[in-house]
Design a protein around this nucleic acid. Structure first.
Lengths: 242, 242
DNA sequence: GCAAAAGTGTTACTGATACACCCATGA
DNA sequence: TCATGGGTGTATCAGTAACACTTTTGC
């Protein structure tokens, strides 16, 4: 920020800002992995108020003068999902003059990865929210579709360098679930033997004695994330090209 | 953005925004590689106006109502460097309540990689600007030091996955120059034989017949960037872990 | 002829790919 | 006993890491 645009009040000899002011909003994209149909989904909202009544949009809010951008995003996420400690990261700000025909609004976007099963379904329904696969995403208000597309691209790229996928899985998960999630994100089929070797070599996983018999008679071993190793790889990055 | 915060004028039956407004600024970080001392540097500005007279800061400006965020960043960069077609990317927005004690300002940061030798030195001096190595960076106003630190970290990470370094080199450059640049960014010494093999295997380089005799009697071959391959790797990413 | 920087190759090892069958269980 | 999904191993190939000497040329 540059204060060249300050003006001086010659009476009080004090400086004041003579420049334009803007409405500032945050918009959140919430992603989840639905273990039932093994699809990556995004949570969208049917607007129940004017303007844009009945249209789908991201969830957002104007920023208030008593909160920072990150606070506003956390507030929105909490109100909607009841979740506090989730992966939430700031992405770009969108500030095209004409992005909102109603008023000049600068919007800072955030994206969040959550564990779908931790979500209170009643809470999201009461907010008019619904999970969509990316094929099903309807028309969205303003430039929300562009925002979503940009963040989806970012997610796909980031997953290659950071083990973010674990934010989308429950505490205990099976190898086939993890495998399906990677296939879903990369949008192609992978060799499952090589996948197992590679993911095991990252030392991110801890195999439990328990099995999950939910999807087969034989049952699949449950795994847990090695949290220290996770933090290490989030920080340092890894190459998980498949 | 969510329009729940809209208020309705019961007389006109029209909606209007009743929420808080903010000053919005852009702040730019400009990086260059100085071929003379083979150091990565950042361009900083000595403020010649109040407030913060005489202190160092990033270059920035308030956003005007007739321009988008990206436009504002381009304008700042153009005014300062005279450069139009450079690498310029948006990074985070900073919106802590108390980040600017003078007023509530939301600042969107941008970072740029430029070829130092394309810069008009007179122009930057007249703006009170100076190149600093990262060891030499002085105290900066507001949260600019934090911004710089965050972007520096981002740059170091990104360089591993995208061939961004070429934005910092002239059209024609030598292998030793490229090698020194990588060492400078990664902050460690690399094996030069393996480095050559690896960078050549990316097919990013085109070796010219000319030699640059600026730094040795023998002379070093000049290389040019293979632009198509560059675009491809910027898009798809590569793993340049060394 | 020597100082200073540029350029080059081989071997050993590690990780990646490609590929097909047996296992455990409940119905 | 059979259908379903889960789990495993090996051989080949490609890429990485470690390592030291020769070349060029202006002074």
């Amino acid at each position: 920020m540059n204060h060249n645009d300050l003006k001086k009040n010659e009476l009080t000899n004090q400086y004041y800002y003579g420049t334009d002011q803007f409405l500032v909003a945050v918009d959140c994209m919430i992603f989840g992995f639905d273990l039932r149909d093994e699809k990556l989904k995004v949570l969208l909202f049917k607007r129940l108020v004017e303007p844009f009544y009945g249209e789908w949009s991201l969830i957002g809010s104007f920023v208030r003068s008593d909160e920072g951008l990150d606070d506003a995003a956390k507030r929105v996420l909490l109100e909607l999902t009841g979740l506090k400690t989730v992966f939430l990261e700031q992405y770009k700000s969108y500030g095209q003059i004409d992005r909102d025909p109603g008023a000049r609004v600068i919007s800072t976007t955030f994206w969040s990865l959550i564990k779908i099963e931790e979500l209170d379904l009643g809470l999201i329904e009461s907010h008019g929210a619904k999970w969509f696969t990316f094929d099903e995403v309807p028309h969205l208000v303003l430039d929300h579709k562009k925002m979503l597309k940009d963040v989806k691209t970012l997610l796909t790229k980031k997953v290659r360098y950071q083990p973010l996928v674990f934010e989308l899985l429950p505490e205990k998960f099976t190898m086939p679930q993890l495998f399906k999630l990677y296939q879903e994100i990369y949008q192609r089929s992978l060799d499952d033997r090589n996948f197992r070797k590679k993911i095991i070599s990252t030392r991110l996983l801890l195999r439990l004695e328990e099995k999950d018999k939910g999807s087969s008679r034989k049952g699949a071993y449950l795994y847990q994330l090695n949290r220290e190793r996770y933090d290490e790889l989030i920080e340092d990055g890894f190459d998980f090209d498949l």
